[in-house]
Design a protein around this nucleic acid. Structure first.
Lengths: 222, 222
DNA sequence: ACATTTCTGTTGTAATTACAACAAAAGGAA
DNA sequence: TTCCTTTTGTTGTAATTACAACAGAAATGT
Protein backbone atom coordinates (compact mmCIF):
# COMPACT_ATOMS: atom_id res chain seq x y z
CA UNK A 1 0.00 0.00 0.00
CA UNK A 2 2.66 2.50 1.09
CA UNK A 3 4.36 2.42 -2.30
CA UNK A 4 1.23 3.94 -3.84
CA UNK A 5 1.10 6.89 -1.46
CA UNK A 6 2.89 9.28 -3.78
CA UNK A 7 0.47 8.38 -6.54
CA UNK A 8 -2.56 8.70 -4.28
CA UNK A 9 -1.36 12.02 -2.92
CA UNK A 10 -1.33 13.52 -6.40
CA UNK A 11 -4.91 12.60 -7.21
CA UNK A 12 -7.57 15.32 -7.28
CA UNK A 13 -9.38 13.35 -4.59
CA UNK A 14 -6.66 13.98 -2.01
CA UNK A 15 -5.53 17.35 -3.30
CA UNK A 16 -4.51 19.64 -0.45
CA UNK A 17 -4.08 16.86 2.08
CA UNK A 18 -0.76 16.35 3.85
CA UNK A 19 1.15 13.07 4.05
CA UNK A 20 0.29 12.46 7.71
CA UNK A 21 -3.36 13.18 7.10
CA UNK A 22 -3.38 10.86 4.12
CA UNK A 23 -2.13 7.94 6.21
CA UNK A 24 -4.77 8.60 8.86
CA UNK A 25 -7.51 9.00 6.29
CA UNK A 26 -6.79 5.79 4.44
CA UNK A 27 -6.87 3.94 7.74
CA UNK A 28 -10.04 5.76 8.78
CA UNK A 29 -11.66 4.92 5.45
CA UNK A 30 -10.63 1.29 5.60
CA UNK A 31 -8.80 1.81 2.33
CA UNK A 32 -7.38 -1.10 0.36
CA UNK A 33 -6.06 -1.73 -3.13
CA UNK A 34 -7.83 -4.03 -5.51
CA UNK A 35 -6.59 -5.52 -8.77
CA UNK A 36 -8.95 -5.95 -11.71
CA UNK A 37 -8.52 -7.82 -14.97
CA UNK A 38 -9.87 -7.25 -18.46
CA UNK A 39 -13.63 -7.46 -18.52
CA UNK A 40 -14.09 -7.36 -14.73
CA UNK A 41 -17.14 -5.49 -13.54
CA UNK A 42 -16.09 -2.98 -10.91
CA UNK A 43 -19.62 -1.63 -10.58
CA UNK A 44 -22.67 -3.49 -11.79
CA UNK A 45 -25.99 -1.91 -12.70
CA UNK A 46 -28.43 -2.27 -9.80
CA UNK A 47 -25.87 -2.34 -7.00
CA UNK A 48 -25.91 0.10 -4.11
CA UNK A 49 -22.53 1.80 -4.04
CA UNK A 50 -21.03 3.06 -0.80
CA UNK A 51 -17.38 2.96 -1.77
CA UNK A 52 -15.16 5.48 -3.44
CA UNK A 53 -13.06 4.00 -6.22
CA UNK A 54 -9.88 5.77 -7.28
CA UNK A 55 -8.07 4.41 -10.33
CA UNK A 56 -4.35 4.18 -9.56
CA UNK A 57 -3.52 2.58 -12.86
CA UNK A 58 -5.40 1.26 -15.85
CA UNK A 59 -8.47 2.00 -17.87
CA UNK A 60 -12.16 1.68 -17.03
CA UNK A 61 -15.21 2.06 -19.26
CA UNK A 62 -18.47 3.40 -17.89
CA UNK A 63 -21.10 1.60 -19.93
CA UNK A 64 -24.76 0.87 -20.12
CA UNK A 65 -26.61 -1.81 -21.98
CA UNK A 66 -29.84 -0.86 -23.68
CA UNK A 67 -32.99 -2.91 -23.32
CA UNK A 68 -32.39 -4.07 -26.88
CA UNK A 69 -28.85 -5.24 -26.16
CA UNK A 70 -26.74 -2.47 -27.63
CA UNK A 71 -23.74 -1.17 -25.71
CA UNK A 72 -23.51 2.50 -24.81
CA UNK A 73 -20.15 3.85 -23.68
CA UNK A 74 -20.82 6.76 -21.35
CA UNK A 75 -17.21 7.65 -20.64
CA UNK A 76 -13.69 6.32 -20.40
CA UNK A 77 -11.77 6.69 -17.16
CA UNK A 78 -8.04 6.58 -16.41
CA UNK A 79 -5.53 7.00 -13.62
CA UNK A 80 -6.69 9.52 -10.99
CA UNK A 81 -10.31 9.26 -12.07
CA UNK A 82 -13.04 8.12 -9.72
CA UNK A 83 -15.52 5.45 -10.66
CA UNK A 84 -19.19 6.04 -9.95
CA UNK A 85 -18.57 8.86 -7.53
CA UNK A 86 -22.06 10.29 -7.95
CA UNK A 87 -23.52 7.06 -6.63
CA UNK A 88 -22.10 7.26 -3.12
CA UNK A 89 -23.86 10.49 -2.16
CA UNK A 90 -27.35 9.04 -2.36
CA UNK A 91 -27.35 6.01 -0.13
CA UNK A 92 -30.41 4.33 -1.56
CA UNK A 93 -29.87 4.73 -5.24
CA UNK A 94 -29.03 1.76 -7.44
CA UNK A 95 -26.13 2.11 -9.84
CA UNK A 96 -27.40 3.11 -13.26
CA UNK A 97 -24.22 2.10 -15.06
CA UNK A 98 -21.67 -0.68 -15.35
CA UNK A 99 -17.99 0.01 -14.77
CA UNK A 100 -15.87 -2.38 -16.83
CA UNK A 101 -12.15 -2.86 -16.54
CA UNK A 102 -10.25 -2.62 -19.84
CA UNK A 103 -6.97 -4.50 -19.49
CA UNK A 104 -5.36 -4.59 -16.03
CA UNK A 105 -6.22 -1.98 -13.45
CA UNK A 106 -5.32 -1.04 -9.90
CA UNK A 107 -7.99 0.65 -7.84
CA UNK A 108 -7.91 2.21 -4.39
CA UNK A 109 -11.17 1.43 -2.60
CA UNK A 110 -12.36 3.62 0.26
CA UNK A 111 -15.34 3.14 2.50
CA UNK A 112 -17.21 6.42 2.23
CA UNK A 113 -19.88 5.34 4.69
CA UNK A 114 -17.29 4.99 7.44
CA UNK A 115 -16.04 8.46 6.87
CA UNK A 116 -19.29 10.30 6.53
CA UNK A 117 -20.72 8.80 9.71
CA UNK A 118 -17.64 8.68 11.93
CA UNK A 119 -15.83 11.91 11.32
CA UNK A 120 -18.78 14.14 10.54
CA UNK A 121 -17.13 17.08 12.27
CA UNK A 122 -14.19 15.47 14.00
CA UNK A 123 -11.62 15.21 11.22
CA UNK A 124 -10.39 18.47 9.80
CA UNK A 125 -9.54 16.71 6.55
CA UNK A 126 -13.11 15.60 6.04
CA UNK A 127 -14.16 19.04 4.80
CA UNK A 128 -11.21 19.17 2.41
CA UNK A 129 -12.25 15.82 1.01
CA UNK A 130 -15.86 16.85 0.48
CA UNK A 131 -14.68 20.00 -1.20
CA UNK A 132 -12.54 17.87 -3.52
CA UNK A 133 -15.49 15.59 -4.21
CA UNK A 134 -17.49 18.63 -5.25
CA UNK A 135 -14.78 19.76 -7.64
CA UNK A 136 -14.39 16.31 -9.16
CA UNK A 137 -18.11 15.92 -9.72
CA UNK A 138 -18.25 19.37 -11.26
CA UNK A 139 -15.66 18.40 -13.80
CA UNK A 140 -17.45 15.16 -14.54
CA UNK A 141 -20.69 17.02 -14.93
CA UNK A 142 -19.19 19.31 -17.52
CA UNK A 143 -17.77 16.31 -19.36
CA UNK A 144 -21.14 14.60 -19.43
CA UNK A 145 -22.68 17.69 -20.98
CA UNK A 146 -19.91 17.67 -23.56
CA UNK A 147 -20.74 14.05 -24.34
CA UNK A 148 -24.40 15.03 -24.70
CA UNK A 149 -23.34 17.70 -27.15
CA UNK A 150 -21.36 15.19 -29.16
CA UNK A 151 -24.10 12.63 -29.48
CA UNK A 152 -26.86 15.18 -29.98
CA UNK A 153 -25.67 16.09 -33.43
CA UNK A 154 -27.91 15.06 -36.27
CA UNK A 155 -25.69 13.20 -38.70
CA UNK A 156 -22.68 10.93 -38.33
CA UNK A 157 -20.60 13.61 -39.98
CA UNK A 158 -21.76 16.26 -37.49
CA UNK A 159 -21.14 13.94 -34.55
CA UNK A 160 -17.61 13.21 -35.72
CA UNK A 161 -16.78 16.84 -36.42
CA UNK A 162 -18.20 17.96 -33.07
CA UNK A 163 -16.38 15.22 -31.20
CA UNK A 164 -13.08 15.89 -32.95
CA UNK A 165 -13.47 19.62 -32.47
CA UNK A 166 -14.07 19.16 -28.75
CA UNK A 167 -11.08 16.84 -28.46
CA UNK A 168 -8.95 19.31 -30.35
CA UNK A 169 -9.99 22.09 -27.98
CA UNK A 170 -9.24 19.97 -24.92
CA UNK A 171 -5.80 19.14 -26.28
CA UNK A 172 -5.27 22.75 -27.34
CA UNK A 173 -3.91 21.59 -30.67
CA UNK A 174 -5.39 20.29 -33.90
CA UNK A 175 -3.11 17.26 -33.81
CA UNK A 176 -4.15 14.82 -31.14
CA UNK A 177 -4.72 11.21 -30.21
CA UNK A 178 -8.16 9.90 -29.35
CA UNK A 179 -8.85 7.53 -26.50
CA UNK A 180 -11.23 5.18 -28.32
CA UNK A 181 -10.71 2.53 -30.93
CA UNK A 182 -13.25 2.56 -33.78
CA UNK A 183 -15.80 0.28 -32.18
CA UNK A 184 -15.62 2.16 -28.89
CA UNK A 185 -15.95 5.50 -30.63
CA UNK A 186 -19.01 4.22 -32.44
CA UNK A 187 -20.50 3.03 -29.14
CA UNK A 188 -19.68 6.39 -27.60
CA UNK A 189 -21.30 8.36 -30.42
CA UNK A 190 -24.15 5.86 -30.76
CA UNK A 191 -23.57 5.15 -34.42
CA UNK A 192 -22.76 2.16 -36.55
CA UNK A 193 -19.06 1.45 -36.70
CA UNK A 194 -18.91 0.72 -40.43
CA UNK A 195 -20.97 3.77 -41.30
CA UNK A 196 -18.63 5.79 -39.10
CA UNK A 197 -15.55 4.39 -40.83
CA UNK A 198 -17.08 5.28 -44.16
CA UNK A 199 -17.74 8.86 -43.04
CA UNK A 200 -14.22 9.19 -41.62
CA UNK A 201 -12.80 8.18 -44.99
CA UNK A 202 -15.03 10.71 -46.70
CA UNK A 203 -13.93 13.49 -44.35
CA UNK A 204 -10.32 12.53 -45.05
CA UNK A 205 -10.80 12.51 -48.82
CA UNK A 206 -12.46 15.91 -48.61
CA UNK A 207 -9.42 17.22 -46.74
CA UNK A 208 -11.31 18.20 -43.59
CA UNK A 209 -9.39 15.79 -41.41
CA UNK A 210 -6.49 13.40 -41.53
CA UNK A 211 -5.84 10.37 -39.40
CA UNK A 212 -3.86 7.22 -38.98
CA UNK A 213 -5.08 4.81 -36.36
CA UNK A 214 -5.85 6.97 -33.32
CA UNK A 215 -3.80 9.98 -34.36
CA UNK A 216 -6.04 12.70 -35.81
CA UNK A 217 -5.48 16.03 -37.48
CA UNK A 218 -8.41 18.40 -37.61
CA UNK A 219 -7.89 20.71 -40.59
CA UNK A 220 -11.02 22.82 -40.14
CA UNK A 221 -12.40 24.88 -37.29
CA UNK A 222 -16.02 24.48 -36.40
CA UNK B 1 -36.17 38.87 0.85
CA UNK B 2 -37.33 37.68 4.27
CA UNK B 3 -40.60 36.40 2.89
CA UNK B 4 -38.70 33.82 0.85
CA UNK B 5 -36.80 32.42 3.82
CA UNK B 6 -39.16 29.54 4.40
CA UNK B 7 -38.86 28.58 0.74
CA UNK B 8 -35.08 28.90 0.73
CA UNK B 9 -34.78 26.90 3.93
CA UNK B 10 -36.49 23.92 2.33
CA UNK B 11 -34.17 23.74 -0.65
CA UNK B 12 -31.60 20.94 -0.87
CA UNK B 13 -28.95 23.63 -1.04
CA UNK B 14 -29.62 24.78 2.53
CA UNK B 15 -30.70 21.45 3.92
CA UNK B 16 -29.58 21.03 7.53
CA UNK B 17 -28.95 24.69 8.12
CA UNK B 18 -30.74 26.53 10.92
CA UNK B 19 -32.71 29.76 10.54
CA UNK B 20 -30.09 31.90 12.23
CA UNK B 21 -27.32 30.39 10.16
CA UNK B 22 -29.34 30.96 7.01
CA UNK B 23 -29.68 34.67 7.70
CA UNK B 24 -25.97 34.96 8.34
CA UNK B 25 -25.09 32.94 5.27
CA UNK B 26 -27.21 34.92 2.88
CA UNK B 27 -25.63 38.10 4.16
CA UNK B 28 -22.17 36.52 3.98
CA UNK B 29 -22.85 35.37 0.41
CA UNK B 30 -24.18 38.74 -0.67
CA UNK B 31 -27.41 37.03 -1.63
CA UNK B 32 -30.14 38.78 -3.56
CA UNK B 33 -33.26 37.86 -5.47
CA UNK B 34 -33.52 38.41 -9.19
CA UNK B 35 -36.57 38.30 -11.42
CA UNK B 36 -36.38 36.86 -14.92
CA UNK B 37 -38.86 36.96 -17.79
CA UNK B 38 -39.60 34.56 -20.61
CA UNK B 39 -36.60 34.10 -22.85
CA UNK B 40 -34.12 35.79 -20.51
CA UNK B 41 -30.67 34.27 -20.50
CA UNK B 42 -29.64 33.54 -16.94
CA UNK B 43 -26.39 31.97 -18.02
CA UNK B 44 -24.87 32.49 -21.45
CA UNK B 45 -22.43 30.14 -23.17
CA UNK B 46 -18.89 31.46 -22.75
CA UNK B 47 -19.42 33.32 -19.46
CA UNK B 48 -17.37 32.62 -16.35
CA UNK B 49 -19.82 31.71 -13.60
CA UNK B 50 -19.01 32.45 -9.95
CA UNK B 51 -22.55 32.66 -8.62
CA UNK B 52 -24.88 30.02 -7.28
CA UNK B 53 -28.38 30.30 -8.71
CA UNK B 54 -31.27 28.77 -6.79
CA UNK B 55 -34.66 28.76 -8.49
CA UNK B 56 -37.29 29.93 -6.00
CA UNK B 57 -40.06 29.86 -8.55
CA UNK B 58 -40.43 29.23 -12.25
CA UNK B 59 -38.92 27.11 -14.98
CA UNK B 60 -35.50 27.21 -16.62
CA UNK B 61 -34.21 25.30 -19.64
CA UNK B 62 -30.58 24.29 -19.89
CA UNK B 63 -29.87 24.41 -23.59
CA UNK B 64 -27.12 24.35 -26.14
CA UNK B 65 -27.08 25.46 -29.71
CA UNK B 66 -25.25 23.29 -32.22
CA UNK B 67 -22.83 24.71 -34.73
CA UNK B 68 -25.50 24.06 -37.36
CA UNK B 69 -28.16 26.02 -35.47
CA UNK B 70 -30.26 23.27 -33.91
CA UNK B 71 -31.41 23.57 -30.31
CA UNK B 72 -30.50 20.88 -27.80
CA UNK B 73 -32.39 20.82 -24.51
CA UNK B 74 -30.07 19.34 -21.91
CA UNK B 75 -32.46 19.52 -18.99
CA UNK B 76 -35.41 21.34 -17.49
CA UNK B 77 -35.10 22.91 -14.05
CA UNK B 78 -37.73 23.97 -11.53
CA UNK B 79 -38.16 25.34 -8.03
CA UNK B 80 -35.33 24.27 -5.69
CA UNK B 81 -33.02 23.39 -8.58
CA UNK B 82 -29.68 25.06 -9.06
CA UNK B 83 -28.61 26.51 -12.37
CA UNK B 84 -25.14 25.75 -13.67
CA UNK B 85 -23.82 24.59 -10.32
CA UNK B 86 -20.99 22.59 -11.86
CA UNK B 87 -19.60 25.79 -13.36
CA UNK B 88 -18.76 27.54 -10.08
CA UNK B 89 -16.26 24.94 -8.88
CA UNK B 90 -13.79 25.55 -11.67
CA UNK B 91 -13.03 29.24 -11.62
CA UNK B 92 -11.60 29.49 -15.11
CA UNK B 93 -14.03 27.44 -17.11
CA UNK B 94 -16.43 29.07 -19.53
CA UNK B 95 -20.06 28.06 -19.38
CA UNK B 96 -20.78 25.34 -21.91
CA UNK B 97 -24.54 25.85 -21.83
CA UNK B 98 -27.22 28.52 -21.94
CA UNK B 99 -29.79 28.80 -19.16
CA UNK B 100 -33.04 30.20 -20.52
CA UNK B 101 -35.98 31.34 -18.48
CA UNK B 102 -39.33 29.86 -19.53
CA UNK B 103 -42.11 32.17 -18.35
CA UNK B 104 -41.50 34.18 -15.18
CA UNK B 105 -38.94 33.05 -12.66
CA UNK B 106 -37.54 34.11 -9.30
CA UNK B 107 -33.94 33.21 -8.59
CA UNK B 108 -31.83 33.56 -5.46
CA UNK B 109 -28.32 34.56 -6.45
CA UNK B 110 -25.39 33.85 -4.12
CA UNK B 111 -21.79 34.88 -4.50
CA UNK B 112 -19.89 31.61 -4.16
CA UNK B 113 -16.53 33.32 -4.49
CA UNK B 114 -17.16 35.33 -1.36
CA UNK B 115 -17.95 32.25 0.61
CA UNK B 116 -15.15 30.02 -0.56
CA UNK B 117 -12.49 32.66 0.08
CA UNK B 118 -13.80 34.32 3.24
CA UNK B 119 -15.10 31.53 5.41
CA UNK B 120 -12.74 28.77 4.37
CA UNK B 121 -12.64 27.39 7.89
CA UNK B 122 -14.38 30.11 9.86
CA UNK B 123 -18.03 29.35 9.28
CA UNK B 124 -19.29 26.04 10.57
CA UNK B 125 -22.07 26.09 8.03
CA UNK B 126 -19.62 26.22 5.17
CA UNK B 127 -18.90 22.51 5.40
CA UNK B 128 -22.61 21.71 5.49
CA UNK B 129 -23.09 23.74 2.35
CA UNK B 130 -20.27 22.03 0.48
CA UNK B 131 -21.67 18.69 1.53
CA UNK B 132 -25.05 19.75 0.12
CA UNK B 133 -23.39 20.90 -3.08
CA UNK B 134 -21.85 17.46 -3.45
CA UNK B 135 -25.21 15.78 -3.00
CA UNK B 136 -26.94 18.08 -5.46
CA UNK B 137 -24.29 17.56 -8.11
CA UNK B 138 -24.47 13.81 -7.58
CA UNK B 139 -28.15 13.82 -8.30
CA UNK B 140 -27.64 15.97 -11.37
CA UNK B 141 -24.91 13.66 -12.55
CA UNK B 142 -27.20 10.67 -12.34
CA UNK B 143 -29.89 12.58 -14.23
CA UNK B 144 -27.45 13.46 -16.99
CA UNK B 145 -26.57 9.81 -17.39
CA UNK B 146 -30.25 9.03 -17.59
CA UNK B 147 -30.60 11.62 -20.33
CA UNK B 148 -27.67 10.02 -22.14
CA UNK B 149 -29.46 6.70 -21.89
CA UNK B 150 -32.61 8.22 -23.35
CA UNK B 151 -30.98 9.81 -26.35
CA UNK B 152 -28.58 6.93 -27.00
CA UNK B 153 -31.34 4.66 -28.23
CA UNK B 154 -31.27 3.82 -31.88
CA UNK B 155 -34.73 4.61 -33.16
CA UNK B 156 -37.35 7.21 -32.34
CA UNK B 157 -39.53 4.44 -30.97
CA UNK B 158 -36.78 3.19 -28.66
CA UNK B 159 -36.01 6.70 -27.48
CA UNK B 160 -39.64 7.33 -26.64
CA UNK B 161 -40.12 4.01 -24.87
CA UNK B 162 -36.90 4.44 -22.88
CA UNK B 163 -37.78 8.00 -21.93
CA UNK B 164 -41.35 7.12 -20.93
CA UNK B 165 -40.15 4.09 -19.02
CA UNK B 166 -37.66 6.20 -17.08
CA UNK B 167 -40.31 8.82 -16.34
CA UNK B 168 -42.69 6.11 -15.22
CA UNK B 169 -40.07 4.72 -12.85
CA UNK B 170 -39.31 8.14 -11.43
CA UNK B 171 -43.00 8.76 -10.81
CA UNK B 172 -43.42 5.24 -9.47
CA UNK B 173 -46.59 4.84 -11.51
CA UNK B 174 -47.40 4.13 -15.13
CA UNK B 175 -49.70 7.16 -15.27
CA UNK B 176 -47.76 10.38 -15.24
CA UNK B 177 -47.37 13.84 -16.69
CA UNK B 178 -44.30 14.81 -18.67
CA UNK B 179 -42.54 18.13 -18.30
CA UNK B 180 -42.01 18.85 -21.98
CA UNK B 181 -44.33 19.93 -24.74
CA UNK B 182 -43.85 18.12 -28.03
CA UNK B 183 -41.25 20.45 -29.52
CA UNK B 184 -39.25 20.48 -26.29
CA UNK B 185 -39.41 16.70 -26.02
CA UNK B 186 -38.14 16.42 -29.58
CA UNK B 187 -35.28 18.81 -28.78
CA UNK B 188 -34.54 16.80 -25.64
CA UNK B 189 -34.46 13.49 -27.49
CA UNK B 190 -32.76 15.00 -30.53
CA UNK B 191 -35.36 13.92 -33.00
CA UNK B 192 -37.72 15.59 -35.44
CA UNK B 193 -40.94 16.73 -33.82
CA UNK B 194 -43.25 15.58 -36.59
CA UNK B 195 -41.57 12.20 -36.84
CA UNK B 196 -41.92 11.90 -33.09
CA UNK B 197 -45.62 12.76 -33.20
CA UNK B 198 -46.08 10.13 -35.85
CA UNK B 199 -44.35 7.50 -33.75
CA UNK B 200 -46.36 8.47 -30.66
CA UNK B 201 -49.55 7.94 -32.63
CA UNK B 202 -48.29 4.57 -33.78
CA UNK B 203 -47.43 3.50 -30.25
CA UNK B 204 -50.89 4.57 -29.16
CA UNK B 205 -52.63 2.70 -31.97
CA UNK B 206 -50.60 -0.39 -31.10
CA UNK B 207 -51.81 -0.12 -27.53
CA UNK B 208 -48.36 0.26 -25.98
CA UNK B 209 -49.09 3.70 -24.62
CA UNK B 210 -51.90 6.16 -24.24
CA UNK B 211 -51.74 9.91 -23.90
CA UNK B 212 -53.63 13.12 -24.04
CA UNK B 213 -51.55 16.26 -24.14
CA UNK B 214 -48.88 15.78 -21.48
CA UNK B 215 -50.62 13.02 -19.55
CA UNK B 216 -49.19 9.62 -20.47
CA UNK B 217 -50.03 6.03 -19.66
CA UNK B 218 -47.34 3.46 -20.24
CA UNK B 219 -49.04 0.12 -20.82
CA UNK B 220 -45.89 -1.98 -21.24
CA UNK B 221 -42.84 -2.56 -19.12
CA UNK B 222 -39.43 -2.38 -20.72
C1' DA C 1 8.48 -16.48 -41.12
C1' DC C 2 3.73 -18.13 -40.71
C1' DA C 3 -0.93 -18.63 -39.09
C1' DT C 4 -4.53 -16.56 -36.43
C1' DT C 5 -7.06 -13.13 -34.54
C1' DT C 6 -8.53 -8.51 -34.10
C1' DC C 7 -9.36 -4.17 -36.01
C1' DT C 8 -10.62 -1.16 -39.75
C1' DG C 9 -12.47 0.05 -44.26
C1' DT C 10 -15.86 -0.72 -48.27
C1' DT C 11 -20.14 -1.57 -50.56
C1' DG C 12 -25.14 -2.54 -51.49
C1' DT C 13 -29.69 -2.67 -49.63
C1' DA C 14 -33.50 -2.19 -46.57
C1' DA C 15 -35.04 0.51 -42.86
C1' DT C 16 -35.38 4.84 -40.55
C1' DT C 17 -35.32 9.68 -40.36
C1' DA C 18 -35.55 14.67 -41.45
C1' DC C 19 -37.87 17.92 -43.73
C1' DA C 20 -41.45 20.44 -45.84
C1' DA C 21 -46.03 21.35 -46.36
C1' DC C 22 -50.24 20.99 -44.71
C1' DA C 23 -54.34 19.71 -41.60
C1' DA C 24 -56.49 19.53 -37.31
C1' DA C 25 -56.99 20.70 -32.64
C1' DA C 26 -56.47 23.57 -28.65
C1' DG C 27 -56.02 27.87 -26.37
C1' DG C 28 -56.40 33.05 -25.88
C1' DA C 29 -58.10 37.53 -26.74
C1' DA C 30 -61.55 40.70 -28.39
C1' DT D 1 -69.05 33.67 -30.59
C1' DT D 2 -65.09 34.75 -34.12
C1' DC D 3 -60.42 35.51 -35.21
C1' DC D 4 -55.81 34.55 -34.46
C1' DT D 5 -52.00 32.09 -32.63
C1' DT D 6 -49.86 28.12 -30.94
C1' DT D 7 -49.49 23.38 -30.56
C1' DT D 8 -49.94 18.82 -32.30
C1' DG D 9 -50.77 15.32 -35.86
C1' DT D 10 -50.34 13.45 -40.82
C1' DT D 11 -48.30 12.39 -45.19
C1' DG D 12 -44.89 11.97 -49.10
C1' DT D 13 -40.18 12.25 -50.46
C1' DA D 14 -35.28 12.72 -50.29
C1' DA D 15 -31.51 11.97 -47.37
C1' DT D 16 -29.24 9.30 -43.90
C1' DT D 17 -28.40 5.23 -41.39
C1' DA D 18 -28.04 0.42 -39.80
C1' DC D 19 -26.89 -3.87 -41.06
C1' DA D 20 -24.77 -7.64 -43.25
C1' DA D 21 -21.18 -9.43 -45.71
C1' DC D 22 -16.86 -9.08 -47.09
C1' DA D 23 -11.91 -7.34 -47.93
C1' DG D 24 -7.82 -5.57 -46.37
C1' DA D 25 -4.59 -4.11 -42.70
C1' DA D 26 -2.50 -4.49 -38.36
C1' DA D 27 -1.44 -6.79 -34.32
C1' DT D 28 -0.44 -11.11 -31.78
C1' DG D 29 1.33 -15.62 -30.88
C1' DT D 30 4.16 -19.52 -32.21
Amino acid sequence: MEKFYSKIKNSPLFCGITDEELTRMIKCFGGYIKKYEDGDMIIRQGEIISKIYLILDGEVNIEKETYWGRRIIIQKLYTNDNIGLALVASKNIEANINALCVGHALVLVLNYDKCSTMCQNACSHHSILISNLFKILSKENIELIEKIENISQKTIRDKLLTYLSNESQKNKTNVFEIQFNRQELADYLNIDRSAMSFELSKLKSEGLINYKKNKFVLKVEL
